[in-house]
């Protein structure tokens, strides 16, 4: 059965130096806030982090970055973080930039037993340099390999004790694919419910992909508050 943690530090204490971790979220939306904070406290180092973005200077993965716990970052857009820029320029941090759809599919493939796939994205660009390009029909495609992780840290709105997860709105983003691509997947859920409380038709991530769960209150910081005035 699934492990239900009550302490975030306990939830991450087997993530060792040099681990590869996937962290869900798009910008600050759908990130497992408390698991990231627990990793900061754990002082684990030399991490390879796979995540679309790298947080902002004072929140999300930006905290791990500031604490110099990340050696390598695989993502698609890292422009929101000044510390990121400093560490890349000084050579402290290695970055692998991947088109966003390719990143999502590499992770999906990792969890789905597909070692590699061809995609049109990136053909004729710097990311295709040294890569394998093949023509299907009248179009060229670039070979991309799957990604897997030692640990995947995901965030869901609701999780039951069997690990079934439901996401809220655009907080879904990379979380479902990452849940499947982690050797160990730890789900931080806003609400932990009894098994059977989620309608099976409404499950986004089936419990088979989730090994451990913990309930956590989220701050849900907003990166760009954009509002309209009442008409």
């Amino acid at each position: 059965m699934k492990t239900i943690h009550t302490s975030f530090s306990e939830a991450v204490n087997d993530i060792k130096d040099g681990s590869t971790i996937m962290v869900g979220g798009f910008g600050l939306v759908g990130i497992p806030e408390n698991l990231i904070l627990a990793l900061v406290d754990s002082q684990v180092k030399h991490l390879t982090v796979i995540s679309n973005n790298c947080g902002v200077d004072d929140w999300g993965l930006g905290l791990l970055l500031k604490n110099k716990q990340i050696d390598k970052m695989i993502g698609s857009y890292v422009g929101e973080n000044k510390e990121f820029e400093r560490q890349v320029l000084s050579g402290e941090l290695e970055v692998e930039l991947t088109p966003q759809g390719t990143l999502a599919e590499r992770i999906r493939a990792g969890g789905a037993g597909i070692p590699a796939f061809y995609t049109p994205a990136g053909v004729g660009t710097p990311i295709a340099e040294g890569g394998e390009v093949r023509t299907f029909g009248d179009k060229e495609y670039l070979l991309q390999t799957a990604l897997k992780a030692d640990f995947s840290l995901v965030r869901a709105a609701v999780g039951d004790k069997d690990g079934n997860l439901v996401y809220n709105k655009t907080a879904q983003n990379f979380n479902p694919m990452m849940a499947a691509a982690g050797n160990v997947t730890i789900a931080e859920v806003e609400q932990l419910v009894e098994t059977g409380s989620i309608d099976p038709d409404h499950v986004h991530t089936p419990g088979i992909y989730v090994q451990r769960l913990i309930e956590g209150k989220q701050e849900k910081k907003i990166e760009r508050m954009t509002v309209r005035q009442e008409a």
Partner: peptide, 15 residues
Amino acid sequence: KMIKGMGGAMDIVHG
């Protein structure tokens, strides 16, 4: 200049 990343642009132009 600092490279921020391509985001989804490389996929979208083929889509």
